[in-house]
Design a protein around this nucleic acid. Sequence first.
DNA 1: AGAGACTACATGCACATGCATCCAATGCAA
DNA 2: TTGCATTGGATGCATGTGCATGTAGTCTCT
Lengths: 134, 134
Amino acid sequence: MAELDSPEEAGLVAQWRDLLARHARTACLLDRELGEKHGLGMSEFEVLERLVEGCESGDKGLRVQELAPTVHLSQSALSRLIGRLEKAGLVTRAMCADDRRGIQVALTEEGCRRYAEARALHREVLSLTLAEEP
Amino acid sequence: MAELDSPEEAGLVAQWRDLLARHARTACLLDRELGEKHGLGMSEFEVLERLVEGCESGDKGLRVQELAPTVHLSQSALSRLIGRLEKAGLVTRAMCADDRRGIQVALTEEGCRRYAEARALHREVLSLTLAEEP
DNA sequence: AGAGACTACATGCACATGCATCCAATGCAA
DNA sequence: TTGCATTGGATGCATGTGCATGTAGTCTCT
């Protein structure tokens, strides 16, 4: 009926299925745990983490377009996500001085704290779910 | 400010980010390509593929609950996905004879054909996106 | 047989996402 | 300068997803 996969293709498919399984396990558990215990989604946490990393060098915050490529979200999804974080008081949005189209996103004290609180759980989930083989 | 990650934690995070990047790249491209050229989403294709694999042994189709664990979707999402496939004429839903709560999902001719048509592209995308390192 | 617990799947609802589009600010050319 | 294309980000809309629940069929215990 259908042609069979070549060995290379079969390897790719196996690799892809493993990736899908790991991703689903991890993302699902992260979302559930972070959501229940810290009121954060996986992507929200990811964005906070980039902001923390960005803050360590210059403290001005990051531009939305600097964030975008690192979080695998569409520009619109990122915009709304930042909106949610802002409403929750975890980040601030400010106009860029040098380019007034741009938006500087910066962590608030509260945002920094929430990230720090959630981080251990995040690492714990990773060590749980990335270790398993299936 | 925030404590640093231990080396093991840093490794996990790096592994997780790599996984996220690969997943996003691959899933996004698969969805776009399969969608544009074959009218299928990534998950739709995945379900068709399981049905093809299931058909090769016994030709009765698979029960929804046999499909569920293999596609990383909630039961409700899978139910609706099957509904879409059915509406598109790619699968049929039939009551199980032995347990009338259960549903047998079986490929139609058309479903088999669409899967066969899409398969090469699927493999091609995998070989493109899973190979890159970043 | 009958009652109640359980299972398999469907569905109402809320929500996050992507695409297309819109608006404002910038840059570039004449 | 004015005019036009481009860019950064926000928003309307359609869609796919998960959770909670509904409904029908099955199982168990008495």
